[in-house]
Simulated scan of single mutants.
Amino acid sequence: MPKSEIEITDLPALLQDSRWTFYLDDIPEQDTRGSLCTNKWLGSLGPGEVAIVNVRPDGYVGSVGRWDSSIDDAGEDAAKWMDAYYERFLQVPAPV
């Protein structure tokens, strides 16, 4: 969506708390390849296609996943994919 239509207050609460790490790329003229962020990392997304890009704090893209939202288990598959990615390095502290 166009940058002018993004409202931080419309984001889920978790992302509102991280508003300074919210990345929006709508200036392809400043990119060396003239590409939008979506095209750089994903190519074109088809209708009903959903993608998640995990970006580290240093800007490195850690992983990219794509799903077809018309498939019933796509949301569950995406959640499992994210769990598998983050469980490699994020651990919930044991209760003391």
Results as ranks from 00 to 15, higher is better:
residue 59 G to L: 10
residue 66 R to G: 01
residue 53 V to C: 13
residue 2 P to E: 14
residue 60 Y to K: 08
residue 6 I to C: 02
residue 95 P to R: 13
residue 87 E to T: 13
residue 54 N to L: 08
residue 16 Q to V: 01
residue 13 A to T: 15
residue 68 D to K: 09
residue 89 F to P: 03
residue 46 G to P: 02
residue 70 S to M: 05
residue 1 M to I: 05
residue 29 E to I: 09
residue 67 W to Y: 05
residue 46 G to K: 12
residue 34 G to P: 02
residue 83 D to E: 08
residue 80 K to D: 13
residue 96 V to I: 05
residue 18 S to M: 14
residue 1 M to C: 04
residue 66 R to D: 00
residue 25 D to M: 09
residue 55 V to F: 03
residue 16 Q to S: 00
residue 25 D to V: 03
residue 14 L to S: 01
residue 39 N to P: 05
residue 89 F to A: 09
residue 85 Y to H: 10
residue 59 G to M: 09
residue 8 I to Q: 01
residue 80 K to R: 13
residue 12 P to A: 08
residue 56 R to V: 00
residue 47 P to M: 04
residue 53 V to Q: 13
residue 29 E to Q: 15
residue 9 T to S: 09
residue 96 V to M: 03
residue 95 P to G: 15
residue 70 S to F: 02
residue 33 R to P: 08
residue 88 R to H: 10
residue 33 R to I: 05
residue 38 T to M: 11
residue 31 D to M: 02
residue 55 V to Y: 04
residue 55 V to D: 04
residue 43 G to Y: 06
residue 95 P to F: 06
residue 31 D to T: 02
residue 60 Y to T: 08
residue 86 Y to G: 08
residue 25 D to N: 14
residue 39 N to V: 08
residue 74 A to Y: 02
residue 45 L to D: 05
residue 64 V to A: 05
residue 28 P to K: 07
residue 51 A to S: 14
residue 56 R to G: 01
residue 93 P to F: 00
residue 18 S to P: 04
residue 57 P to R: 15
residue 13 A to R: 15
residue 52 I to H: 11
residue 72 D to V: 12
residue 36 L to I: 02
residue 26 D to Y: 07
residue 76 E to N: 15
residue 72 D to R: 14
residue 54 N to M: 11
residue 22 F to Q: 10
residue 88 R to V: 12
residue 39 N to E: 15
residue 42 L to E: 01
residue 22 F to K: 14
residue 72 D to G: 15
residue 71 I to E: 12
residue 38 T to F: 06
residue 76 E to F: 12
residue 2 P to M: 12
residue 79 A to W: 03
residue 25 D to L: 08
residue 81 W to L: 04
residue 87 E to K: 12
residue 89 F to N: 06
residue 58 D to P: 01
residue 43 G to W: 10
residue 71 I to F: 00
residue 9 T to K: 15
residue 22 F to A: 03
residue 33 R to L: 14
residue 82 M to E: 04
residue 5 E to S: 02
residue 52 I to A: 09
residue 37 C to D: 11
residue 9 T to Y: 14
residue 4 S to K: 15
residue 86 Y to N: 11
residue 15 L to G: 00
residue 90 L to P: 01
residue 78 A to Y: 06
residue 80 K to Y: 05
residue 58 D to E: 01
residue 80 K to H: 10
residue 55 V to K: 14
residue 5 E to L: 10
residue 71 I to G: 10
residue 83 D to K: 05
residue 81 W to S: 11
residue 75 G to Y: 09
residue 72 D to F: 08
residue 5 E to R: 13
residue 23 Y to G: 02
residue 48 G to D: 09
residue 74 A to R: 01
residue 31 D to Y: 04
residue 15 L to A: 03
residue 10 D to F: 09
residue 76 E to I: 13
residue 9 T to I: 12
residue 55 V to E: 04
residue 38 T to Q: 13
residue 86 Y to H: 11
residue 48 G to I: 11
residue 62 G to W: 03
residue 93 P to G: 13
residue 16 Q to D: 02
residue 60 Y to R: 08
residue 85 Y to Q: 08
residue 91 Q to R: 12
residue 42 L to Y: 01
residue 53 V to E: 10
residue 8 I to D: 00
residue 34 G to F: 00
residue 76 E to Y: 07
residue 81 W to H: 13
residue 15 L to K: 13
residue 52 I to V: 15
